[in-house]
C-alpha cells in the first residue's frame, strides 16, 4: 500500500487494522483520517465522506458498524504514546498527540480543569488519527502566480479537512526548493508538528516545531531571517506577532478555517490582520472524492 496509511497501522488495534486492510487499495489511498470512538463506531474519512465498516469489512450504516472498545482505545493511546502518556501532557492539553513518523492524533474526552484551564483528560473518548499527505505539486498554481506577479502574503482557507496543511507544506517546499521560481529562505512555524516532514525536501527550509506560533514567528525572524514564514491555523492572540513579523518585510503564508473571506472577517483577530494588509491574496481550497482543488483570489480586489 502506498497510501501512507500502513504507517498508521502500528498505532491501531489489530481488530480494526484487519477490517481497514480489507478495503480496496484505491479507496485506502484516499483515506485522510481514522477516527476511533470509545464504545461507538470507528470511521474513516475519505474526502468529504465518512465511512463505517461492519464486521465483514464492508461499508455500512452507523447502526451496523463495528465499535471500538474501551480497551482498544487504551491500547491505541498506549501505542501512540509509547506507553508513556505523561510525556505528552503539553500536547494532550491542546488536543493532540504527535505521531513519530508524521501526522498527529487528535484527542478529546472528559477534561480535567485546574483554575479554569484544561490540565488534561481524565478519560479520552475519541482519537482522530490524521494522515500527513505530501502532494509535492499541490501548490504549483500558487508558485506560478508568485513567479508571475511577485510573492505576497497569502491566506489559505477552507473548512476543516480540505487540505490546508498539505497545501502549505507543498508551497513551503516548492518555494524553498525554487521550483519554477527563485529559491526562497522559508521558515516554518510548526506548532503542532504537522507541516514539516523530515527528509522530504532539500530546499532552504528552516523549521521550528512544537512551539507556540507567536514565539516561533518572533524567533525565526530574529535568528533565521526568513523571506517567507509558513504557519498553520492562525488563532486569536497571535495576530500581533504576525503583524510585527510582516513589518520586518517577511511574507506570510498562513491558513485559517473558513467557508468564505466574509466569514473569516467576522473573527476580529482575522479582520485585524486582513485590515493590516497582511495578505495580498487568498487561496480557497476544496476537496471531494476526486481530490483537491484550489482557487486564487486577490484580496485587494474585494
Amino acid at each position: 500500500m502506498k497510501s501512507g496509511l500502513d504507517s498508521f497501522f502500528r498505532y491501531i488495534p489489530v481488530r480494526i487494522t484487519k477490517l481497514i486492510a480489507t478495503l480496496p487499495i484505491p479507496l485506502l489511498e484516499k483515506v485522510t483520517e481514522i477516527r476511533l470512538r470509545s464504545e461507538s463506531p470507528f470511521s474513516l474519512t475519505v474526502g468529504v465522506k465518512n465511512l463505517m465498516l461492519n464486521s465483514d469489512g464492508t461499508p455500512c450504516n452507523p447502526s451496523n458498524a463495528v465499535c471500538t472498545t474501551k480497551k482498544e482505545m487504551e491500547e491505541c493511546l498506549s501505542l501512540l504514546s509509547q506507553g508513556s502518556l505523561y510525556t505528552y501532557d503539553d500536547t494532550i492539553r491542546t488536543g493532540y498527540i504527535p505521531i513519530k513518523d508524521g501526522g498527529r492524533a487528535g484527542v478529546c474526552g472528559e477534561a480535567v480543569l485546574q483554575n479554569g484551564v484544561v490540565r488534561g483528560f481524565k478519560e479520552i473518548y475519541s482519537i482522530n488519527l490524521r494522515l500527513h499527505r505530501h502532494i509535492p505539486l499541490f501548490a504549483s498554481e500558487l508558485i506560478k502566480f508568485f513567479a508571475r506577479e511577485g510573492i505576497c502574503g497569502t491566506l489559505v482557507y477552507s473548512p476543516p479537512a480540505m487540505g490546508k496543511t498539505t497545501f502549505l507544506r507543498s508551497a513551503a517546499f516548492l518555494l524553498g526548493e525554487g521550483k519554477n521560481i527563485r529559491p526562497f529562505r522559508v521558515g516554518i512555524v510548526d506548532e503542532r508538528c504537522e507541516i514539516f516532514i523530515k527528509g522530504v525536501s532539500d530546499g532552504l527550509v528552516d523549521v521550528i516545531s512544537n512551539c507556540p506560533k507567536a514565539y516561533g514567528i518572533e524567533l525565526l525572524c530574529r535568528t533565521m531571517s526568513p523571506e517567507v514564514i509558513v504557519c498553520d491555523e492562525i488563532g486569536s492572540g497571535e495576530q500581533d506577532a504576525i503583524i510585527s513579523a510582516q513589518n520586518t518585510g517577511v511574507h506570510l503564508l498562513a491558513s485559517a478555517h473558513g467557508e468564505s473571506i466574509e466569514g473569516i472577517c467576522r473573527r476580529p483577530f482575522m479582520k485585524k490582520m486582513l485590515d493590516a494588509g497582511l495578505f495580498g491574496i487568498a487561496v480557497r481550497l476544496n476537496a471531494d472524492e476526486n481530490g483537491f482543488d484550489c482557487k486564487i483570489e486577490r484580496l485587494s480586489e474585494r
Partner: peptide, 11 residues
C-alpha cells in the same frame, strides 16, 4: 495505571 496517566498523577 503505569504510563496511562498525566504527569502529575503518574508522579
Amino acid at each position: 495505571q503505569l504510563g496511562k496517566t498525566d504527569f502529575i498523577t503518574q508522579k
